[in-house]
Design a binder for these strands. Sequence first.
DNA 1: TTGTACGCGTTATCAA
DNA 2: TTGATAACGCGTACAA
Lengths: 340, 340
Amino acid sequence: MRATIRDVAKAAGVSTATVSRVLNKPDMVDPETIERVRAAMESMAYQPSAIARGLSAKRSDTLGLIVPGITDFFFNELYKGIDRASQQNGMKVLLYDSEHSRDRALEGFSILGGYQVSGIIFTSKLVTEDYDPILQRVGVPVVLTLTQSEARTPVPSFRIDEVRAMFDVVAYLVTRGHQKIGMIAGRQWDDKTGELRLEGYRKGLRHFGIEYDEKLVEYGQYRFDDGYQAMQRLLEKQPNFHMTALCTASDEMALGAIRCLNDNGLHVPEDISVVGFDDLPLARMITPRLTTVAQPFAEIGEAAVSWLVRAVGREPSPSEIGDYLLPHRLVERESVRALG
Amino acid sequence: MRATIRDVAKAAGVSTATVSRVLNKPDMVDPETIERVRAAMESMAYQPSAIARGLSAKRSDTLGLIVPGITDFFFNELYKGIDRASQQNGMKVLLYDSEHSRDRALEGFSILGGYQVSGIIFTSKLVTEDYDPILQRVGVPVVLTLTQSEARTPVPSFRIDEVRAMFDVVAYLVTRGHQKIGMIAGRQWDDKTGELRLEGYRKGLRHFGIEYDEKLVEYGQYRFDDGYQAMQRLLEKQPNFHMTALCTASDEMALGAIRCLNDNGLHVPEDISVVGFDDLPLARMITPRLTTVAQPFAEIGEAAVSWLVRAVGREPSPSEIGDYLLPHRLVERESVRALG
DNA sequence: TTGTACGCGTTATCAA
DNA sequence: TTGATAACGCGTACAA
């Protein structure tokens, strides 16, 4: 049986209220009393019940995190930032995996609500109007990371400027002499990021006077196999292969594309240059090291938590609710070759 | 303000006890009443407070998970299994990252205890006698995954037969004509796994009559950079390179070793064969695809949760507390070349 | 089948 | 500076 606040109170010869004060407002307690109480706690290995505390105080020092899939490679980096910031603020994190299902994501809000989380971080999936009812009644602040909202309920989002990022990739490639630039874009029904990056790609081409050619574009759902298959289709669509560079919407798809190219006797970057997106830890581990767009995952996580912590218990002003665009960065490595 | 059980009771014209029963023992309630109550809950979007429930029932339907580092590549796979099994049992998971610090790991038990978790899964780090006091007083069942215990308090562990696994690797290599087999072993002060795998390596050599040569062995802490540097040292230790195959204690170190070899103009598997350990998702994504030992991470996670769920609320019999060795598997891919 | 009333471990309010 | 005591939201004897 765990020791309770009552046990400690009895042992120290004080009331439970005093024990509670020692824990929460020590400056209101006589130093000697503090000493006695602390000793008692020590000897009984007392650990306050976060549960009871949550019930009484109506807050739980816990943040809820909803992710689409735990196996997404970027998860670890994002979580690192979230965990770091949470810890600094004395918060715990409750994880909820929606398994890429909208229903489960919706359910996640309720379940986390049941745990009295102080705030919720929602990740990666596009938030549409379906979310409005839930968003209205969760009763705790919600922030978005790596995605944005199309719902009416105002919600802040932390992410990068997707369009600009992909524009930068195209610019980088053009500067290195590439003109025939293909793309494996991201596409999922509940994802807007893919469109945005594709838009950046088109914008980039247009800016440099290159015509958009849909034979050079394919789609995938961000994972390795999607990249592999998309590359396969790209190869089939152009019998006389003349693409010199390829942008992708994720490092994983870039890996898939590279594997596919290798399996077809093509080499990176000798035969074709490839640029990834995300800068996952593994991007620098493979051969060739992957040139890619670094997303500040950890920073995004930290920023989201900070916002949440500041927002808890009060109504955030409209000016605080916006899209926070954190800086991305193109990381030059070995998968792009300068032409001519 | 969230709706409480009282609000629902009032709306349905019943007592809170009845509402509670509708939730927990519907068979004791009149069907019509159920109907009414359910409707009320629906209309108010009632979500029972897991917090209050936990306080009252003294259990929280929550499992605690202590991992050494969220960025360890195997984490996602392990978590997948844990999450799956937890869900099936209506449990949530509270994550705690000990950041490879023993003090923080110890603290993890207390904190998770404060959240009234029903059980705790401890991962990867060796459990020594320092853990005994904590283990004694957590008051909830604890299981180990991917590690084992040297503490006196009996704790079950779920893992693979490390010695046998590495023995199998050596056997595999010898069968393919390799004799000069090196190893990048794992080594950390709070880790026994590394020793075990090294033991399997030595056992393998001995079994096939190959002499152990410490010039062919180096150590690292499982991460990419460790593998890279260990390979570097290996290269320096033997000016006239004649190692034909290399075992590693982790896929990440295998990647590091391969990168290092590449940087030194050596190719895998043409110049040297490399075998990884873990079979992380990325093992099949790189070129060459990595031959490696598959650990059943997800299954280990599931097994651990199942055990925990069965153990909660009662004293597990001694026969249940043991080392559960799950089957590993050597996955043949492209990083090993058959000699001669 | 249903309702009343108490307890779970804290915090917060109000007196002392 | 301290102590009683009433919440917090739910589960569950016990009684009806």
